[in-house]
Structure formats: C-alpha cells, structure tokens
Computed example of a mutant assay.
Amino acid sequence: MIDIYSCYIVGAKVHPAESAVLATEMMTETFSIHGTLQVVHADRGTSMTSKTVAALLSDLEVTKSHSRPRVSNDNPFSEAWFKTLKFAPVFPESFGSLGDARRTQDYVVKRTSEGKGEKEIMRCLKRYVAREIYRVLQNPRLGLLTNDLRPRRLALHLTQTAVALELSAWPKAISRIERGATQDRVLSERYRTWLSEQPKVSA
C-alpha cells in the first residue's frame, strides 16, 4: 500500500499466492500502525474486489475506490512504482525463495521510510548486489548437485507447486533448483531434508 500524498510505502506483504484473507490482514495491520484511512483505492483484482475486503472497509467506514476496467492510469502511483522496480537492472527474473523476496521488500520499505526516492533505493540495491557478487567471487564454492531432487519428488507423486507451498517458496524457485539453474544452498538443503521426511508412496 502506498500513500498517494507522500508516496511512502505504508504496508507491504509477500506471499506465495494472493487471497482476500491476506489482503485483509495486510490492511488491518497497516491501519493499526498508521490509523484508519479515509479512502482505499485499488485495481480490480479478485482480492481487492472480494466481499472479505469490502466488509472490512465497510465496518471501518473507509471509502472503497477501484480503477475503471482496463484503465491502469486510474492507479498511477502503484503502477509507476511497479514499473520502476520491475524494469530496474537489479530486479531478478525470480527470487531464489520467499525469504529472499521478503528481505528485498523489507529493505525497500526501510529505505523508503528514510525518505529515499526510487532512484536512490535502486542505487542502494545495485551496491548491495555488487558487494554480494564480490563476496562470492572472493570465496567461490563448489556447485550444488541437485539432479536427484526431481526424481525423488516424482517418486512421491508431488508437484512443484505442492513442494513450494510446503517450503514457503515460489514454484519457479523449486524448478530452478531441480534444473541446477540456481545455487541456493539453504533452500536446496531444506528441499532435500523435507523430501527425506515424506512417507514413501507404494507403486
């Protein structure tokens, strides 16, 4: 959630999937910190137009506003922020895990609350990425061997989505680990340990 007057991020959450319940929880938490708002404007996504969110805003006497169908310009502040973030060179194709996404979110929210603008936040992120790359280059580690994970998952009749939900990760992150396209040791070990704990499925 972005305050349209200050352009500060007043509320943000990252979850594997979107839902009306999660949207309500985020709004409730945001209101408890910043006070109940007069107007909440949103797009016409299923979560924001749900009866659950509508009931919360009605109970709190908050005016509910929505963009016109297929008119993204009705929500210019959020759309501008998302475009700036997604088109930045440091924005990844996908995060290695849900934890990585949440850490990035927390970092952006923190810098925004300090009064930094979008360009300055992007510079901070670039410097952070540069430091991480330098650290890896100075301390190289052997590549991970993860080619056993996919056969083990399939033997248990599990989908990547099911695994991702259990590990609080993105399905794409699970796919990248299985293909050896990422070196996320923490998530890889969690994945292997979790598979070991699952009951075997009889043929």
Rank of each mutant, 00 (worst) to 15 (best):
M122Q: 13
R70H: 15
Y5H: 11
F95I: 07
R123T: 15
K64A: 14
A88E: 03
D43K: 03
A88K: 02
L158S: 01
R123W: 15
S58W: 10
I121V: 13
I174V: 13
F91C: 10
A88Q: 07
L158V: 03
N147K: 12
R135W: 13
W194L: 05
T84F: 14
V53S: 00
T49F: 05
I133W: 12
S113I: 06
V201H: 07
L144N: 02
T63H: 14
A12P: 00
L137M: 14
V136R: 09
T146D: 04
S65D: 09
A155S: 11
L142Y: 12
Y134S: 14
M48R: 03
E189I: 08
D106E: 15
R153T: 02
D3Q: 05
V201P: 06
V201E: 06
S19W: 08
L85D: 04
S202K: 15
A20K: 06
G11S: 04
L137T: 07
P171D: 04
V201M: 07
V62G: 04
V109C: 03
S188P: 02
H41K: 09
F91M: 12
A80M: 06
R103W: 13
D148S: 10
N75R: 03
R190V: 02
F91A: 08
E114V: 00
T84G: 04
V129C: 05
G143E: 13
Y107D: 04
E61P: 03
I2A: 01
S175L: 12
L56W: 08
Y128F: 11
T84M: 07
I9R: 00
E25I: 07
F95W: 13
A12C: 11
A130Q: 14
R179T: 08
